[in-house]
Computed example of a mutant assay.
Amino acid sequence: MLSSFSNFPLDLSGDHHIHTKLCNHASGEMEDYVRAAIAKGLRSMTFLEHLECGLRYEHQIWLTPELFGQYFEEGSRLQQKYAGQIEVRLGVEVGWNALAADELLAELERFPFAHRGLSCHFHFDGRRHLNLLSSRQEHIDALAALGADKVLEAYFASLTEACAVIPCDKLCHLDAALRHLPDIRLTVRHQEQISQLLRLMADKGIALEVNTSGYAVRPLPYPAPA
């Protein structure tokens, strides 16, 4: 429950992790989300569209520069239309890929993102990028074959590396890589990695996102309080 985070400063007046159909895993128009947010009494909202670079992956679930242009054009129109009713921010969710760090940094400079979330959605197995958050059995089986402990260790190491390199405001869905893998358990090593990551975030002023999409998979947000 969100009440488990009551000792921490949570902003419950806005939704700051909203995707659009431009990334091919959401639906509806951007304006639909703005109207829904106003109807729910939210004071602010942030579209957080996907930026990924250098992936060997068969599906396009991130925005190209051309699509980011469309995103900003429509987002700017909505900011003006709904000014005074809700604050609409145009942000980005940066997917970390150590093999494309320079490209990611260059792409971040192309647009005036008002908010930057940081994530790691893929595990590179030496041949292709496996989607850690995918429910496709092919990816679940491939990750399980690599070993859950190994995948999680690489995941937390990647997040730490990403926080050191990418200028960002928050880290998204800390334990979402636990979503579909069977027989998941956090080892002492994983706990040490998480502690190291959180210390780095504190030093850099990076917030930890509480992402309620976890409720669709388990009765807890990302991350779980534990």
Rank of each mutant, 00 (worst) to 15 (best):
Q70V: 03
G28R: 11
L146T: 02
C23T: 09
Q137S: 08
C120A: 13
A144M: 00
E49F: 10
E93W: 01
E107H: 14
L108M: 15
A154L: 00
C163T: 14
L105P: 03
L108Y: 02
L55W: 01
R136Q: 13
G91A: 07
A154R: 06
R136L: 10
K170Q: 13
G54F: 02
F68P: 07
L118M: 14
H121I: 07
G54S: 05
V92L: 08
N24Y: 08
F113W: 07
C23F: 09
H59V: 09
E66M: 02
A114D: 14
A142E: 10
L143I: 04
T64M: 08
E49R: 08
I140K: 11
K150G: 01
V151C: 06
E58V: 05
A162E: 09
G126A: 08
T64V: 04
L51A: 09
A145D: 08
L90A: 09
I140T: 11
N24D: 12
A37H: 12
R77T: 06
E161G: 06
E103S: 13
A37L: 10
L55R: 14
F72N: 06
F124V: 03
F111P: 06
G91Q: 06
A157N: 12
P65H: 02
L48G: 05
H115F: 15
L132N: 04
T160S: 12
A98D: 08
L143S: 07
L63T: 07
V94N: 04
L90Q: 06
L105T: 02
H121D: 07
N131C: 13
L105Q: 08
A26E: 10
M45H: 08
L130H: 04
E107C: 13
A144H: 01
L104K: 02
G91Y: 03
L42C: 06
E93M: 05
R127K: 15
L55H: 04
W62D: 13
C53T: 07
G75P: 12
R89I: 02
R116D: 03
K150V: 12
L118N: 11
I166S: 11
V92W: 03
A98H: 12
F156W: 10
S158V: 01
H59R: 14
S76K: 14
F111V: 03
R116G: 04
E73R: 13
S27G: 05
A164L: 14
P167E: 10
